[in-house]
């Protein structure tokens, strides 16, 4: 059975603005996390590279590239977003006490889960999307590492660390 998208939020709240704001938050977090990664990446990348006389970037020195890929590093940036989503769920519940006690109607419905679905669906969906985005970003970081850093400049155990972190 399919559920209308408008039934994923409390009655009287439009789903479109809620999704738009949540999506904007998610994108902003993803962008911030990616920029933070790039900044750190470029810093350490600069340590294992230098410029030759012709101005080309070349790998040099004994230093290895730091393994910057970490679920926790991304999670820190997403923490505020997840907190906002949790507060959104609380607000959706309290919405049933604002201006009237529509909670009485919600608690008289045949489906006892209706109230909780309407309060928690959007926050839970966006928390799942946030966690998925963290993993996607980590895979993008791995691809960037593999594309830009030669194997001899990687720590031999970097792969193992990444997978332990991600899984």
């Amino acid at each position: 059975m399919t559920r209308k998208s408008s039934r994923l939020v409390p009655a009287g709240i439009g789903i479109k603005p809620v999704v738009l704001v949540s999506l904007s938050g998610l994108v902003l977090c993803g962008f911030t996390a990616f920029m933070a990664f790039l900044e750190r990446f470029m810093y350490f990348y600069g340590k294992i590279t230098s410029y030759d006389d012709a101005g080309n970037r070349v790998f040099s020195g004994d230093e290895k590239m730091q393994p910057l890929i970490s679920f926790n590093a991304n999670f820190d940036i997403f923490k505020i977003f997840f907190l906002c989503m949790a507060l959104l769920g609380v607000y959706f519940f309290l919405h049933h006490f604002i201006g009237s006690k529509s909670i009485y109607t919600m608690r008289r419905l045949k489906n006892p889960l209706e109230l909780y679905i309407r309060c928690l669906a959007v926050p839970v969906i966006f928390i799942i999307l946030g966690i998925a985005l963290i993993y996607i970003l980590n895979f993008i970081y791995i691809e960037i590492y593999l594309a830009l850093v030669p194997e001899e400049y990687l720590y031999p155990w970097w792969n193992a660390n990444i997978w332990r972190d991600l899984l």
Binding site: A11, G12, S100, K101, S102, I103, Y104, T105
Partner: peptide, 8 residues
């Protein structure tokens, strides 16, 4: 106390 949805 009303049990309707004020925004609807």
């Amino acid at each position: 106390e009303h049990s309707f949805f004020p925004a609807l």
